[in-house]
Amino acid sequence: MARIIGGIGITHSPAAIFAHDKGLGGKPDWAPFFEPLAQARAWLEAARPDLILCVYNDHLNHFFFDAYPSFAIGVADEFPLAPEAGAIPAFPPIPGDFALAARITEAMVARDFDLTVCQELALDHGAAGPLRMLAEPWPAPVVPIFVNVLRAPVPRPARLYALGRALAEAVAALPDDLRVVVVATGGLSHQLHGPRGGEINEEWDLDFLARLPGEGEALAALTTRDYVVRGGAEGAETVMWLAMRGALPDAVRPVVTGYLATGSTGLGLLVLEAG
């Protein structure tokens, strides 16, 4: 039986991804994020996953508002990188697994998560950035799961947690003996528009990181508005981490925690090990 062995919550901040890509992570200013990131990379390497589920959001680089899914899943053997900022990032495509993704889709639909199925999907920095920060070359095929966090109405926090629960059941139903890791990207606090644009709520970010391991259900019981009030309009994408927590068993062990408030974003990192 396949099982979820751990979960990772990680920012997809372009600044952090840029620092990673340019090899700037060793600079002292970046240490509070990149030192834990090195631990997360080591954990992932030792975990030897066979499959990665990546819960993320796109930033108008693949999807557009003409037809915008609330939830979508990539069912393909390969996911190219999406063009963004006028260039196609010079990194190889991310490997997928059509058969496993199809099975997961069937299991999700059987649990009333009727995901939009994308048989062609380009991944922007929301997925591709954290994936290459965590490992490169990527150690296992990826099943990307897209969430609308851009345009209201967005799925409720409790729905993200339920998505994680359903993913855990879908993984358990796979006939193969696979080791699965769930990665959720985004956050933490950031507000990119309006009179308070650029503000970060460090206190809330640290509270969220501390509480997610043991109080996932309580965090999932908050409203979308609560997340906006605490972490900013754009920071409300942090709810995607609830899917990661929901996918893990009740008993988890935090093995890596990292946080750095820099620029306009609270950069968060959390690795949870099941059991």
Partner: peptide, 14 residues
């Protein structure tokens, strides 16, 4: 906690 005010600080993208 420096709370954002959804009515004053946030332009909802709906």
């Amino acid at each position: 906690m420096p709370d954002f005010d959804p009515e004053r600080d946030i332009l909802p993208f709906d």
